[in-house]
Amino acid sequence: MAATELPTCRWGILTTGLISSWFVADLVMPREDAKAKHIIQAIGSSSLEKSRDFAAKYVKDVPYQTTVYGSYEEVYNDPNIDCVYVGSPHGFHKRDCLAAIAAGKNVLCEKAFTINAREAREVFDAAKAKGVYVAEAMWLRHRPMLADLRKLLYEDKVIGEVFRTTSDFQMQLDIASLPATSRYKDLSLGAGSMLDIGIYPLTWAILTLDPGTPTQSEDPKILAAQSFVDGIEVTTSLILHYPSSGRQGVVTTTTERRKGASEIIATIDGTNGFVEVEGAVPSHPRSFTVYPKWTEDKKPEGKKYDYQRLQQGFIYEADNTALDIAAGRKESPIVPWAESIRVMEIMDEVRRQGGTKYPQDSA
């Protein structure tokens, strides 16, 4: 490969749900700042019709032909695929990752990576034994916004010493009205707000309260509570406390309330100011504003850093995955295996204190 040539990643897309459609739509959209070339090599679903419909809708106006399959196994066995993107529900992640790994495929698997930390270790052990690349698709961590914000907080210290982060994710599902067949009521699929959306405000807290690298992070103390409807967790509140600094994170999530007009998805407080992160929900940030310390009756003037673009933001994790694979890496330096396990351990502890139990916990 020439020094100026971009690496190419040929993707096999597993499942045709909403998250897969977002991922593919971002990758096929033209852009000038690409760090890699992405080809949607194949689509795999439970039926050929679903794959065809998905490809017709989301893989358009591209200079290549996408293969459609009516099974996952055909994706795993396709020799033209460089990396499998796993977009299935949480409860299937371990199964689908292990199948792809067994076929010798590199894998980018959606968050939450698995149901619990034990499953995550099992997947990474298999990847190590097979010698393939596996990473958790926590797209929030790959955004340039996060690297810039962490630099401002801990190198430039624009708000002094950080002492608290708050973040809340709200989504209206009305669990009580859903049929028993809904994935949102299936515990074996990881039902509940914590794994589905709570991981995002949790990530905001982790990334803004701990200045360490992913391999040199402090494990916070955790205090958590959960509430349930029809046996499904619908609201989680947790406090993260970092003993070495005294920093605290207040993380809340619920599927019982529709988000209001407020566009502040996270707030970071410091001794000399504060930062407000703006966006639709914690998974979709678009900007943040740095404010000086609030000393008057009126809100102080802030400096806004805008990161809005046409794509939703999946391009960053896709680019980094392509670069990792091209470089021969087996882990993502942004989301290494140990960090995915650590986050799963935190959520395991939240569920232990809150009372959420999945069938896989006792497997």
Rank of each mutant, 00 (worst) to 15 (best):
T4V: 10
R10H: 09
W11G: 09
T16N: 08
I19E: 13
D26E: 14
D26M: 13
A34V: 11
A34Q: 14
A36L: 04
L48R: 09
E49W: 00
K50E: 12
R52G: 08
F54A: 09
F54W: 12
Y58S: 01
K60W: 00
T66W: 01
G70L: 06
S71T: 12
E73H: 04
N80M: 05
N80S: 14
D82A: 02
G87R: 11
P89A: 09
A100Y: 06
I101H: 02
A103N: 14
G104D: 09
V107G: 07
L108M: 15
C109Y: 10
K111Y: 09
K111E: 13
A112T: 12
F113S: 12
I115E: 11
I115F: 02
A117M: 10
V123D: 00
A127N: 05
K128P: 00
M138Q: 13
W139V: 04
L140M: 07
R141V: 03
L146D: 01
I175H: 08
S177E: 13
P179T: 07
L187E: 02
L189D: 00
I199M: 10
T203H: 04
A205N: 05
L209H: 00
G212L: 07
Q216L: 06
Q216D: 15
L223S: 07
A224D: 01
Q226S: 14
Q226K: 09
F228S: 04
D230G: 00
I232A: 01
L238V: 05
I239H: 03
S244M: 08
S245D: 06
V250I: 15
V251Y: 09
R257W: 09
T289L: 08
V290P: 04
T295H: 04
Q308M: 14
R309I: 06
F314P: 03
Y316N: 05
A318H: 07
N320M: 07
T321A: 10
A322K: 05
D324Y: 04
D324S: 13
I325A: 08
R329E: 08
E331K: 05
E339N: 08
D348M: 08
V350P: 04
R351C: 14
Q353T: 06
G354S: 14
Y358P: 02
A363W: 09
